[in-house]
Nucleic acid binder design. Structure first.
Length: 264
DNA sequence: AAATGACGCAACCGCCTGTAG
DNA sequence: TCTACAGGCGGTTGCGTCATT
């Protein structure tokens, strides 16, 4: 028995998402959550692969995403983390609230790489370019220096060197060190530390929803009504159908009120 | 104003990992 | 222990936009 494809690709749409598709996906996920990505497009009435839906949600539609260019602090953090972790974008994104691995990867490839090269720093090894020996193609890059060349040049002291290889077990950045906007006066949201460092969701986990904004498409789509949920984010939504939505981790069905028939 | 090239970002592809049966 | 599967990750591509000529 061959492996079943993740979705039936016949007749599935590819390419850029339309506003209507976004609206369907967001509406569905906010109402039902994603119990199984494979069935999300079917139930939401989308001719898309489940993976595509997950990607669209994760990288663009999630309500806690920041948009716009990375700040200087964020860029510095990305550089430091890249020196420690290499191209493990999801791990890096986990330390930047509201940023996605894809966004950081793109920003690295288009901006930071050039910036480092311009400064005479090899973006792979984080050493000065004139100290980087030519590497055979099959060999991994040398381990990063204790203090990155970026820091040597810049004099910055932000980089926390990790001695333990298991970076998953030891958070590189303490939750309080993560650049997060302070809660607004009108917000009564509170973010539990466990949520802040939750490894299960690359970037949404680390963000405070009180600071989150809907990405522009939400407004364009007239989704304001959906967002008119008061302070429900931090408590977990209970939406029609008995489903809870935990904005800091996963959107999951409330086991007590989960309508299995509806899903099936 | 039109043509061309460079750039940036969204999305896809394919592999890897974790997990349930 | 093995197999099948879903979800996740990183690399890559394609296209739209902007700048330059």
């Amino acid at each position: 028995m061959g492996r079943q494809p993740c979705c039936d690709k016949v007749g599935l749409k590819k390419g850029p998402w339309t506003a209507e598709e976004d609206q369907k996906l967001v509406g569905f996920l906010l109402t039902h959550g994603h119990y199984c990505w494979r069935v999300v497009p079917k139930l939401a009435g989308l001719l898309r692969c489940g993976k595509s839906c997950r990607l669209r949600w994760t990288n663009y539609l999630r309500p806690d995403l920041k948009r716009g260019l990375l700040s200087d602090e964020e860029q510095q953090l990305v550089i430091d983390l890249h020196a420690q972790l290499g191209n493990r974008w999801s791990k890096i994104a986990a330390q930047l609230p509201g940023r996605t691995d894809n966004e950081i990867k793109n920003h690295w490839n288009t901006h930071i790489k050039k910036k480092l090269r311009k400064m005479g720093i090899d973006p792979v090894t984080h050493r000065p370019l004139d100290q980087v020996p030519p590497r055979p193609a099959q060999q991994p890059p040398p381990p990063p220096p204790t203090t990155t060349a970026w820091q040597q040049q810049d004099g910055a002291e932000h980089c926390q060197q990790v001695e333990d290889e298991d970076v998953k077990a030891v958070p590189l950045i303490q939750p309080h060190e993560v650049t997060a906007p302070p809660p607004t006066a009108s917000s009564n949201c509170s973010v539990s530390p466990a949520s802040v460092v939750s490894p299960s969701c690359s970037s949404s986990a680390a963000s405070g929803l009180e600071a989150a904004e809907w990405p522009e498409p939400m407004y364009l789509l007239g989704m304001d009504g959906i967002m008119d949920v008061g302070s429900g984010w931090d408590a977990g939504f209970v939406v029609p159908g008995g489903l809870s939505v935990d904005p800091f981790d996963h959107y999951y069905p409330d086991p007590a009120g989960f309508d299995q028939e509806a899903w099936l």
